[in-house]
Simulated assay, not measured.
Amino acid sequence: MVSPPLRPGEVDVWLWEWQVAEDRRQVLLGETVMWDLVPMDQDWISKLFADRRSVPLQLDTYAGHSEPADAPEWTRMSGVVQRIEHVSVRYVQPTDPSGTGSVPERGAAVVHTVPSIWPEQPHTGSTTGWIVRIVEAFS
């Protein structure tokens, strides 16, 4: 599935599956949100989408506000949820012999548009996260 291009005032935000599960976070289409965001790990997005997609920001509930030396660059965003994409991927054994565990199959991310992040919709592979498109609110 190809996502529609961003229009002026729209931003894509990554939500990690494990953080959504731990925080029991719910996000719905049409919901107004106010989030503190940090830059997204572009290496991860590149692995999932093989450089076909960019997601600049992430909602990371573990990024520390209190440690100035390690503090990420924060972006406060408020707006309305315009689109939610469920992202799943197959994990494979790494081709690098020094690698351990499994890694996402490069470029094999599968994306489904959903009305909310819960309940989780049927999908292929393992859920890795959601891309939430926000239309920024301007004051």
Rank of each mutant, 00 (worst) to 15 (best):
M1I: 12
V2G: 15
P5M: 14
P5I: 11
L6S: 12
P8L: 15
G9S: 05
E10P: 01
E10V: 05
D12Q: 12
W14C: 00
W14D: 04
L15V: 00
L15F: 09
W16P: 01
E17N: 14
W18L: 15
W18A: 11
W18P: 09
Q19H: 12
E22V: 01
R24N: 06
R24T: 00
R25D: 03
V27F: 02
V27S: 02
L28P: 06
L28F: 12
L29D: 01
L29K: 05
L29C: 05
E31K: 02
E31T: 04
T32S: 12
T32V: 09
W35I: 03
W35Y: 00
D36L: 04
D36Q: 08
L37E: 02
V38E: 00
M40T: 12
D41A: 13
D41Y: 07
Q42R: 13
I45L: 05
I45E: 02
I45F: 04
F49C: 05
A50W: 08
A50N: 13
R53Y: 08
S54G: 15
S54C: 14
S54P: 14
V55R: 02
P56H: 01
P56W: 00
P56S: 08
Q58G: 03
D60S: 13
T61G: 15
A63I: 11
A63K: 07
A63Y: 10
A63S: 13
A69I: 02
P72C: 04
W74S: 02
T75H: 10
M77S: 07
G79I: 00
V81F: 02
E85N: 11
H86A: 12
V87R: 01
V87S: 03
V87G: 02
S88L: 09
V89Y: 05
R90A: 06
Y91C: 08
T95S: 13
T95M: 06
D96V: 12
P97S: 10
P97Q: 09
T100D: 06
T100L: 12
T100N: 09
G101Y: 08
S102N: 15
S102I: 14
S102D: 12
P104C: 05
P104N: 04
E105P: 06
R106S: 09
R106V: 14
G107I: 08
A108G: 13
A109P: 00
V110K: 15
V110H: 14
V111I: 08
V114T: 02
P115V: 03
S116L: 05
W118F: 12
P119Y: 08
P119Q: 11
P122V: 06
H123L: 03
T124C: 03
G125Y: 06
G125E: 01
G125H: 01
T127Y: 11
G129S: 10
W130N: 02
W130Q: 03
I131T: 07
V132Q: 03
V132K: 04
V132S: 04
R133K: 12
F138K: 13
S139F: 07
